[in-house]
Nucleic acid binder design. Structure first.
Lengths: 340, 340
DNA sequence: CTGAAAGCGCTTACAG
DNA sequence: CTGAAAGCGCTTACAG
């Protein structure tokens, strides 16, 4: 089991090439001119021995780990996974690597903070926070010490470091679309009630109704948790209570999937009997039966933009985060309301 | 933008506490006895200054990075994401952190090797390979240098380091189930043709047919890529060719989703007109319409087991990977064949 | 129990 | 252009 062959060091290379370690270092970093013949000799020896500089040691002297910490709520959620993918793509061109830590399945909030600790302890040069529930104050404190950017969550006081879509506006447009289709009784499955995005989307829903002169019926607003099963349970509840509605606006696609299953189980057809609109446009939403009409949330692009912003901060430039809009993608889960 | 306050070091703590750095180190590592009063003093100063030891420096001395590299084909695929989640859960209890690198979207294979390079360069203490297409030979070479474990892929010659389910057997049982339901013309959407898992599943399908005395019709076997769109295209092709079949066994859930959409678009009902069975039991498969009958692939558990095995290797113990079985989960996408 | 010293593998002024 | 020296922040024998 013992891996006897200890890695070869810069000193070994220097010896083999008949130069000093400093010179080897110089050809490695390209920092200064080195005589052509020596450079060639060093390169040959490196190639021959498959030498790879020890980034850890390099990091000690530079004071940088060349690691970007990513704190993600749940890597298993397709939306967050896409953000991470975007981050990884953007970081690939850079010398930075990704160190990830998941937080969601850590029951208590304290553990979430613990994830942060771990990343910091490892001397991540920068941090990208993806969703999650770490208190704003804590994040503000961290941002004092290390470049930080947040995706899909807001941090009050640090708005310029947060990448988000206009949730309220997008939810407003989604609801308006349903109203335009003639629906008058539109139910809403909210996201996790204390989540800012959930609140913003619910606000957009309410505004659309109000502007159209439609009554806002609290009985049609049921709270979910941004999950499939909570969407399922929410619609079950609506159905059991005997509420009347011809459309549902779900706070995200996952809860829309659950809503659709509840409808299906009760024998309702989508969209003939009830229209459903989601939010996020997960990849799978193009494959539900019927394909889901939803708001496109550009997760991959946001992840990329966040990483690029962080890279900028790492170079001591301004983060300069772009803004993204979320457009409605019309598929087949919503249709014109039947005459009532 | 400059983060002026440079991190405080063990030397600072020593000075403040009036002891030597060695002593501080000793209370930190708990390596040797330290007088109670000094220990208390040091601890107080550490607490007061929020000191966190520099793991990079520590790593230089110990020769370990305390980082586990995870090479994953595609973090965006729910199946792989679940494996990563399992890995993370298992590593959480340990002092190791996760460094991930994705490979799939790097077009050429060379780039996939590059991901490996990057992880090695960072001196990952161990590696977990999740899927992917890095050549076996390359992986065997890497395994010589650093503890390595593979999940959801095989490496010939390194079978004891690979965690896999019995793909052939599970596919066999899934197909048998369909046969038991009275289906005689069962189509198969394969996975990526050169992928071992895809081959094993196709072999299981063929064996079930053969054992039941059913003819194996090559026209009913269409190749997919383990993706939604490839499943869609495969079934489209079947339908356009006018093939007759009453059931489909898809090599994985994602291609089953695509297959279902193609069926839906052509007006076929599931399972009344055609039964569909998938493989993986992704979380979402409980929410498709109708819920998908599929083979449960214990991704999270496999990820955990892989991480635990690696942790064992890191302690110079035998990997001792457990074996997992994949059982059929019966839901509503398959039903008894109609009399023909 | 505890401090001074050496060393982990690199990089970077400092002198030639 | 290039080598010797110092130092990055820690840990670990080595002496007391």
């Amino acid at each position: 089991m013992s891996k006897a062959n200890k890695p070869i060091t810069i000193g070994d290379i220097a010896r083999y090439a008949g130069v000093s370690p400093s010179t080897v270092s110089r050809v490695l970093t390209g920092s200064k001119r080195v005589a052509e013949d020596k450079r060639a000799r060093v390169l040959a020896v490196i190639e021959q021995h498959q030498y790879r500089p020890n980034i850890v040691a390099r990091g000690l002297v530079s004071g940088r780990s060349m690691l970007v910490g990513v704190l993600v709520q749940d890597i298993t959620s397709p939306f967050f996974a896409n953000i991470v993918r975007g981050i990884e793509e953007a970081l690939d061109q850079s010398p930075y690597r990704l160190m990830v830590s998941t937080t969601q399945w850590r029951a208590e909030q304290q553990k979430e903070g613990r994830s942060l600790e771990l990343l910091l302890e490892r001397r991540a040069d920068g941090l990208i926070v993806v969703g999650g529930h770490i208190p704003d104050a804590e994040l503000r404190a961290v941002a004092e010490q290390v470049p930080l950017v947040a995706v899909a969550r807001s941090i009050s006081g640090l708005e310029h470091l947060c990448l988000q879509v206009d949730n309220e506006g997008a939810a407003y447009r989604a609801t308006r679309y349903l109203i335009g289709l003639g629906h008058r009784r539109i139910a809403h499955v909210t996201g996790t009630p204390d989540h800012p995005d959930a609140q913003a989307r619910a606000a957009g829903y309410r505004r659309a109704l109000a502007e159209a002169g439609l009554p806002i019926e609290e009985a049609l607003i049921v709270s979910g948790q941004f999950t499939e099963d909570s969407g399922f349970a929410a619609v079950e509840e609506l159905l059991i209570r005997g509420e009347r509605f011809s459309a549902i606006f779900a706070a995200n696609d996952q809860s829309a999937y659950g809503a659709m299953l509840a409808l299906f189980n009760h024998g309702y057809r989508i969209p003939e009997d009830v229209s459903v609109v989601g939010f996020d446009n997960l990849f799978l939403s193009a494959y539900t039966l019927p394909p889901l009409t939803t708001v496109h949330h550009p997760a991959v692009e946001m992840g990329q933009a966040a990483a690029e912003g962080l890279l900028r901060m790492l170079r001591d430039e301004a983060p300069n985060l772009p803004s993204f809009s979320a457009e409605l993608v019309i598929r087949q889960s919503a249709m014109r309301a039947r005459q009532t």
